[in-house]
């Protein structure tokens, strides 16, 4: 079973305690942006075979939203971090860089 450490309350939570919330770091677009941009904001998500940044909620615990960096193929967890951020913190990126040499985030954007 997948386990993630909640960065707020420090609990190492089982998957049953958590609610997945989709891709992290999606930026909301203003309503006056183009159709293509708004479509991407609403529907196009990163779907990598490998490193993925996700939102999770510690729903049966402290109730807070946090972020996790995870590998979708090996289910390896690189770390979790608070949601009040624009992007993954440096230490998480370093951990991923060390374990997945040559990896790049969001090759499309």
């Amino acid at each position: 079973m997948l386990t993630l450490r909640c960065p707020y309350c420090g609990v190492l939570a089982d998957e049953t305690e958590l609610e997945p919330g989709g891709e992290a770091h999606v930026r909301r677009k203003a309503s006056d942006c183009g159709d293509g941009e708004f479509e991407a904001y609403l529907f196009l998500r990163e779907n990598p075979r490998g490193v993925h940044f996700e939102r999770w909620r510690h729903v049966n615990g402290c109730g807070k939203w946090f972020h996790a960096a995870r590998d979708t193929v090996t289910l390896e967890v690189f770390g979790t971090y608070p949601a009040q951020t624009e992007g993954p913190p440096g230490e998480i990126m370093e951990t991923i860089g060390a374990r997945r040499p040559g990896w790049r985030w969001r090759e499309f954007s």
Partner: peptide
Amino acid sequence: ADGFNNFT
């Protein structure tokens, strides 16, 4: 189905 991305 799982609620999170999973290729396993």
